[in-house]
Each structure stands twice: as structure tokens, then as C-alpha cells.
Computed example of a mutant assay.
Amino acid sequence: MNKNNQAERLRMIRKSKGWSLQDVENHSNGKWKAVVIGSYERGDRAISLKKAISLMEFYQVPVSELFPEIAPIVSARSLTLDLVRISSGSDAHTEQIRRFTRLVSDRRKDWNGQLLTIRANDLQFLSLLLGLTDAATLDYLTEAELLTA
């Protein structure tokens, strides 16, 4: 992301909260100094990813709001889950995925029991159930080999 665009996004996010630079310092009990936030917003000072994440957590805004030009991981694309592998998994995430896939299959009246294609909004809902980001959910599904090619 262009440094100036990021600076503008930081300012826009702060202003969307209705806060001045001094309000940020006050609400954070001095953790975030007005002069530092101002320098990030002007683009005079680069913000590290770690600090950007921390600042977005403070603002209670998803860090993805700093990077709006990055398309969602699974936009129009669909994913195919391997229901056989999911049925044999034993960790907590796999159990939640198993319940999720049963509900989706029942709702769609798709009982083939082998594969289930999910859409981007299904992935978002699954991510909420797992308490993970969409990216972390996709990583988990990939690493656990629960997706088919």
C-alpha cells in the first residue's frame, strides 16, 4: 500500500470514531501519543505492521480496513471441502466444521457425503464459528488437507 494512502486511511478511521488526535491519547491512557498518531497520519513516519495491528485493535476496527485494495481471499471463487477427511478429524475445529457442513448439506439437500462446495459467504460464516479470520480459516483448511483440488 502506498504510504500516503495508508496515512489517509489511518486519519479516516480515527475521524470515523469522532476523535481528535488528543482524544486518541486520552482514550488510550497515553499509550498512543497524539504527536505519533499525527505523524503516522501525515505519512511522516512509517507504522510497523505490529503497531498497525495494535492500533486497529485499539480503534476496534479490522486491520483489513487499512488495506482496502487487497481483495478478499475468496471473492467469487468457491472451495470444495472433503467431507470424508472432515468426518475423520478429531480436533475442536474439525468438529465445528463437521457440524457446519452437516447443516449446510441439510439446508441444500445435498447428501452425497463426499464433497461440499462452499461459497465466499459460507467461508465467512465458518470463520465466525471458528473464531478465526477468513485467511486463518483458509490456512487451517489447507494445512489440515480438508480442501480438494
Results as ranks from 00 to 15, higher is better:
Phe67Thr: 08
Lys50Phe: 00
Leu129Ser: 09
Arg119Gln: 11
Ala34Pro: 00
Asp23Gln: 10
Asn112Gly: 07
Glu95Gln: 15
His93Glu: 06
Leu138Gln: 11
Leu128Arg: 13
Thr94Val: 13
Tyr59Asn: 05
Arg119Pro: 00
Lys31Trp: 00
Leu79Cys: 04
Ala46Met: 12
Tyr140Trp: 13
Lys50Ile: 01
Glu69Gln: 15
Thr80Trp: 03
Met56Gln: 09
Ser28Asp: 02
Ser64Ala: 12
Met12Ile: 14
Ser64Trp: 07
Ala144Cys: 01
Ala46Lys: 12
Ala149Pro: 06
Gln124Asp: 13
Glu95Trp: 13
Val74Thr: 13
Trp111Phe: 11
Leu116Phe: 03
Arg9Phe: 09
Met56Val: 04
Leu141Gly: 04
Ala120Asp: 10
Ala52Tyr: 06
Ser87His: 10
Ser48Pro: 01
Leu79Arg: 03
Ser39Leu: 03
Ile118Gly: 02
Leu79Lys: 03
Leu10Arg: 02
Ile37Lys: 07
Arg119Trp: 06
Ala7His: 00
Val63Thr: 12
Met1Lys: 08
Arg98Ser: 11
Ala76Trp: 11
Arg9Ala: 10
Val63Trp: 07
Thr117Arg: 15
Arg42His: 08
Ile13Glu: 00
Ser78Phe: 12
Ser28Phe: 02
Glu69Lys: 14
Trp32Arg: 02
Phe100Cys: 03
Lys3Ala: 11
Leu132Met: 15
Arg98Phe: 12
Lys17Trp: 00
Ala76Thr: 15
Val35Cys: 00
Phe67Gly: 02
Pro62Cys: 08
Phe67Trp: 12
His93Met: 12
Leu147Met: 09
Val84Leu: 15
Gly131Phe: 07
Thr117Gln: 12
Asp91Phe: 09
Met56Thr: 13
Leu123Ile: 14
Glu69Thr: 12
Asp110Val: 07
Gly113His: 04
Ile47His: 02
Gln60His: 14
Leu115Phe: 12
Lys51Gln: 08
Asp139Ile: 14
Ala7Gln: 03
Asp82Ile: 14
Gly113Phe: 06
Glu25Lys: 03
Leu138Trp: 10
Gln114Thr: 09
Leu126Ala: 01
Ala7Leu: 01
Glu25Ser: 04
Ala46Ser: 13
Phe100Asn: 05
Asp134Thr: 15
Ile13Phe: 06
Leu147Val: 10
Thr117Asn: 11
Thr117Tyr: 09
Phe67Arg: 05
Glu95Ala: 13
Ile73Met: 12
Arg108Trp: 07
Ala71Asp: 08
Phe67His: 09
Ser90Leu: 10
Arg107Gly: 08
Arg102His: 11
Thr80Leu: 05
Thr137Tyr: 05
Glu95Phe: 14
Ala52Phe: 01
Lys51Cys: 00
Leu81Asp: 08
Gly113Ala: 05
Leu115Arg: 14
Met56Asp: 05
Ile86Cys: 04
Val63Gly: 06
Ser78Glu: 12
Asn26Cys: 08
Leu21Gly: 05
Ile70Gln: 14
Ala46Phe: 05
Ser127Phe: 06
Arg119His: 10
Arg45Asn: 03
Asp106Gly: 08
